[in-house]
Simulated assay, not measured.
Amino acid sequence: MTLTGLYVPLITPFDRSGAVALDALEALAQQALDDGARGLVALGTTGEPSSLSADEQQAVLGVVRRVCRERRAPLVVGANTAASLQMLCSHAEVTAALTVVPSFVRPGEAGAVAHLTRLAADSPVPLVVYDIPYRTGQYLSAAALRRLAEVPGIVGLKYAAGGINADTVELFADLPDLAILGGDDTFISPLLALGAHGGILASAHIATGEFVRLIDAWHAGDVAAARDLGGRLGRVSAALFAEPNPTVIKAVLHAQGRIPTPDVRLPLLAAHPDSASAALTAVEGLLATPRA
């Protein structure tokens, strides 16, 4: 299985009563695929899964499963424990699980690799490892990521190292047999230039088609177009991530009339109006710029 192209990690919209707005979620999923996304991610961190009840999580998953089944689109589901992975065994639509590197305990590289190796061995679906050290507290070197690439059952890496560093260069200099999907929205263009196979990008709720074009441009070797579009999308992503994800994205989607409220659940707080306004201005500027 090869994971390429754009995957949109769906937010969880809420209605005015505070309940999950399942109709709005379905509309977002359908629109992302209509606009060219290769697949969807359900219950990723962008979807605020830790603030959802078990019933709400199943309702969200049911909607996205149905959309992906009808559209024949790949579905990746956030699952970080053996128990949550086992729950995916009855869902034929699930292509892979997005599994974050263990957080807070900082087990060291060897411990992280051993943990993910065990999960992969016991999982009914392949794993896409989510490496995001500035949130987990556990850094993985290029050598550790290469060891994970050799583990049966690990088929992809969502790479969000917080920028481009020496290990990034080392990893991409000799790509392992692993689908690498950029996960740092602001840096997706340089990661694609280095050889990333695609991206899992929350920013792609907004201007999905432009992110698809960016990935296609780099893969086609159209450097001039990719550089221009990548720079403009980078500014949009920076504005959308000016506050904790997905607060600004929800504010923009609400302003566009695509979700019933901009609400998030604690411990997140709603984005400041200034951040939402700045992001809307950035998006409007992107969409108003003629394509190269």
Rank of each mutant, 00 (worst) to 15 (best):
82 A>E: 14
82 A>Q: 11
82 A>N: 12
82 A>S: 09
84 S>I: 14
84 S>W: 12
84 S>L: 10
84 S>R: 13
85 L>P: 00
85 L>K: 02
85 L>M: 04
85 L>G: 01
86 Q>P: 07
87 M>Y: 15
88 L>N: 02
90 S>I: 14
90 S>K: 15
91 H>K: 15
92 A>T: 10
92 A>M: 08
93 E>D: 15
93 E>A: 12
96 A>H: 04
96 A>T: 04
97 A>L: 03
97 A>S: 01
98 L>W: 02
100 V>E: 04
101 V>F: 06
101 V>H: 05
102 P>W: 10
103 S>E: 11
103 S>W: 11
103 S>R: 12
104 F>D: 08
104 F>L: 13
104 F>A: 06
105 V>H: 12
106 R>F: 12
106 R>V: 14
107 P>Y: 07
108 G>S: 07
109 E>N: 09
110 A>V: 14
110 A>T: 14
111 G>N: 09
111 G>A: 10
112 A>H: 08
112 A>L: 06
112 A>G: 05
114 A>Q: 15
116 L>Q: 02
117 T>C: 14
117 T>D: 04
118 R>T: 11
120 A>D: 04
121 A>E: 14
121 A>I: 07
121 A>T: 08
122 D>Y: 11
123 S>C: 08
123 S>K: 08
123 S>N: 07
124 P>I: 06
124 P>R: 09
125 V>E: 00
125 V>N: 01
127 L>V: 03
127 L>R: 04
127 L>N: 00
128 V>R: 05
128 V>E: 00
129 V>H: 02
129 V>M: 03
129 V>F: 04
130 Y>P: 00
130 Y>I: 04
131 D>L: 06
132 I>N: 03
133 P>T: 00
133 P>C: 02
133 P>I: 06
134 Y>E: 13
135 R>S: 13
135 R>P: 01
135 R>F: 10
137 G>F: 12
137 G>Y: 09
137 G>L: 13
137 G>M: 12
137 G>P: 05
138 Q>E: 06
139 Y>K: 11
139 Y>W: 15
140 L>M: 03
142 A>F: 07
142 A>C: 09
142 A>T: 02
142 A>E: 01
142 A>R: 07
143 A>D: 12
143 A>Q: 12
144 A>E: 07
145 L>P: 00
146 R>T: 02
146 R>K: 10
147 R>E: 11
147 R>G: 01
147 R>M: 07
147 R>T: 07
147 R>I: 02
148 L>W: 09
148 L>P: 00
149 A>Q: 04
149 A>V: 02
149 A>K: 07
150 E>K: 08
151 V>I: 10
151 V>E: 06
151 V>D: 03
152 P>V: 10
152 P>D: 10
152 P>R: 11
153 G>I: 02
154 I>R: 01
154 I>A: 05
155 V>W: 08
157 L>V: 04
